[in-house]
Design a binder for these strands. Sequence first.
RNA 1: GCGAGUGUGGCGAAAUUGGCAGACGCACCAGACUUAGGAUCUGGAGCCGUAAGGCGUGUAGGUUCGAGUCCUAUCACUCGCACCA
Length: 972
Amino acid sequence: MEYNFSEIEKKWQQRWTAEGSYKVTNDPSRPKCYVLDMFPYPSGSGLHVGHPLGYIASDIYARYKRLKGFNVLHTMGYDAFGLPAEQYAIDHGIHPAVSTDDNITNFRQQLDNIGFCYDWDRSFRTSDPSYYKWTQWIFLQLFESWYDRKAGKARPLTALLELFAAAGNTAHQCPGDPSIRFDAAAWNSYDNRRQQEILMNYRLAYCGYGEVNWCEALGTVLANDEVIAGVSERGGYPVVKKKLRQWYLRITDYADRLLEGLGTVEYSDAMKEMQTNWIGKSFGAEIDFAIYKAPPDKKLRVYTTRPDTLFGVDFMVIAPEHELISTITSAEQRPAIDEYLAYVNSRSERERMAEKKITGCFTGAYAIHPFNGLHIPIWTSEYVLAGYGTGAIMAVPCGDERDFKFAQYFQLPVTNIIGDQYNGLEANPTKDAILQNSDFLDGLVMKDAIVIAIKKLEEKGIGTRKVNYRMRDAAFSRQRYWGEPFPITWESDERGEGQSLIATPLDESQLPLELPHVEKYGPGPEGEGPLANVAAWTARHLETNTMPGYAGSSWYFLRYMDPHNDQEFCSRAASDYWGQVDLYIGGTEHAVGHLLYSRMWTKFLYDRGWIGHEEPYKRLVNQGMIQGSSRFVYRVELKAKPAEMNSQGKPALLGSNNPIFVSSGIAAMEGTPEYHQLITLAVREIFNDPGIELESITLTPLHVDVNIVDGVELDIEAFKKWRSEYANAEFILEDGKYTCGVEVEKMSKRLYNTVNPNDLVTKYGADTYRMYEMFLGPVEQSKPWDTKGIEGVHRFLRKLWRLFYDETKGQVWTTAPASQEEWKCIYRTIKKTGDATERFSFNTGVSALMIGVNELIDLKCHKKEILEKLVIILTPYAPHVSEELWRLLGNEGSVLDAPYPAVEEKYLVESAKNYPIAINGKTRTELTIDLDATQQQVEDIVLADDTVKKWLEGKPPKKVVYVKNRMINVVI
RNA sequence: GCGAGUGUGGCGAAAUUGGCAGACGCACCAGACUUAGGAUCUGGAGCCGUAAGGCGUGUAGGUUCGAGUCCUAUCACUCGCACCA
């Protein structure tokens, strides 16, 4: 009876499904564990071996926790809405609903093959109306809520209305526009249109005009995290700034709590760092500078984190978009400024990013230093961004690199306020220097001076302490088809003014607002979404934008807890039971996008009392990326010398019809005489013509499908079949083999370096495949895929099988009682495997199992009472073979619910230890000594040893270091 | 430029706290069984050296009885951010 993995796996997958073995119930009487994968966008190219890495890790952990007695929630769904799905559909001319369907079918089949323990009854896709009904519902709650900064939490808008009616907004500054101020009387006098305008500036989901990242090629706006270096993350198309009406999430109001929350979760430091940087909190001051010869109410307000350098200011720089620029520019500078602004306008975001040259222009205006009255020239330059701080800075060239370069370029004088800490050649951004030339700050260390400067500025009423964030409110609308429609209609106000439409929420009873099926989903008119082309849609005055991809993924983890509830997004009982996700596994690419948004939504739902916890993911593990290991063949095109001219008198091109490939070792010699000679000889043989002389050789490396390469050796027959044009290819070999070149690249179909899990499962089985992915190395680590080692893991499972059944002898397991040594072996294995699984060190978990099996083979142990424990601890890693063996041993229930064996420590305690004996730190010998030996006993034993005596050469040792249960070191 | 991370045999890696460096596996070598072996089993193996022994965790220092692990400097690679005042 041999290990027939394909039969075993098929059998158990069917039975587990039929028996509902993975069905999870919300059972508050049992301890819970929630293990979640970042759900995939079902791409058209299906899964390659890189994708399941995290899924296998979480599956092992989920199964392990189940054996440990936890009620484990583990399920899977699809992030089906969004730009990639729509783009794929457009590229392939298939409706996104159809392509998404097809892709999901394919994904599901691939996932099922690997044997995951998902409760598929809880699965959904974000594009299901029954799901996005609740995405829309949460959006409406965001729309109807504001952030009460005093209370530090979101509250319903109705509470704000009461506050306004009673006391205006004096106690609750308007987050959207701080200049909006009114008392109760004013509020009550406003008409509905004005009141709605004001409320829009408070809503957590709001609509406004703003500079957005507009991508013409994709025909939509993108969030900041979807734009990389001036081009779109998807497709790499140019992105420009454009003013458009957009929906936003007021995530900036959650900036502080998103930062604080990082202290309560277990994410990697790198992940926390990325989020912290993205939020970009900085502490500083806003300072008002009077402008020379300007009316006193026209002040130049700058933001600085270094108010201590106030006396080092040599010039001011304002952003080209700054509102003051038109009013302060002097007559003689006007032409230069106009020209400069035109130049800035002509530059795309991309150009600015790519070529960072120093540009700028003097406005002709001067600011007045509030303490020494000096006149400070005001410049404008691209390097000051309109969107951050006040869009204006005070430039301190001796302390800031950019200011310094600017000063140098325009030959502006530099004031030194830090003495010999400034060398005149570059700026020194230190905070530790002692200030000079700084009036009341003289003699202070800079970091202490910051506080003092702010205090003085506040006293004089020309500055205030100010916290700034780099993070902007998140753009929340897309001018695309394949997303959740906004449950919003645009109603004209009571005066029927077409220009001032009021965003009006649909009633909850009208949800879900279903996405209409359309045949064509091209862009609508004037930057509007495709829905603007749907007459039935526009007739209802419905919002024509759709929500971005991250809307549905911001709360999906809650839906798994209560997936079929059509009264609520998730009952409070369900979310209270399952609580936080205990383990969340996914890639780093979602570090700032998805994770920040879902953290914000969770905090919001918590604020409003719908759930009881405010951080969604307690522990986050980022699986590494599996890179592709590409293989290359080297094609040569050869030009023969004139002696070989053909009938037309042109040099013959050899290898253009029947391609010729040289092995990588030969290709590597390119350019050497040996290379030329070797190829010439080979070509003479191929064409059976000893007269051929080559004039030139052109070498082209080409990607070849990794699946027809064994290690680096090309399967030539498979290669000829791979492409019809290679059917008659010729090969110049090395040692009778064709060796391919190797390079590590991203895994992608285009590079022919993808490996499909299905192929490996067919060849070795799901259990082998699962274990091999884990055996590759730590989950968090990125590494190139290499199929080579999978045989070793497969061999392990076959060796395991032979502990139970032998090909010739049949059953070899017995019910004989186990020996002391066998117990010791199994308990050691249980301990090591369990510990490894607990700390996500799945590669060492696999190796602990291998060691255990090797030892049991050495012990010739075939005892049921030992083997059945082994089978249980193997279950998380290789569930199919474990279940099969478990049943063959005569057990009744499923191994999936067997109790994880406890470690009996008594079998593991030792009375003596084989100590390494080191001389001066170098191990020279070993001695077995009782664990409770005293220092004196140890010294006596060690010094009597022949090897030690030899090294001592008769002299007494300086010292004998004895660390119990570790080692012994003799110092000479 | 700034921030984070990683450097260990031919290869993937291991070494929870400073205590036998290289577990486990791949590839490799030798042998056994075989008509055969890309099956299976047994054994070998970091490098140099016949051996004794020496050298070994990117490089150079340091702390320590003892360093892959801690400290300082430096190099290389990977990732993230990139005019954020």
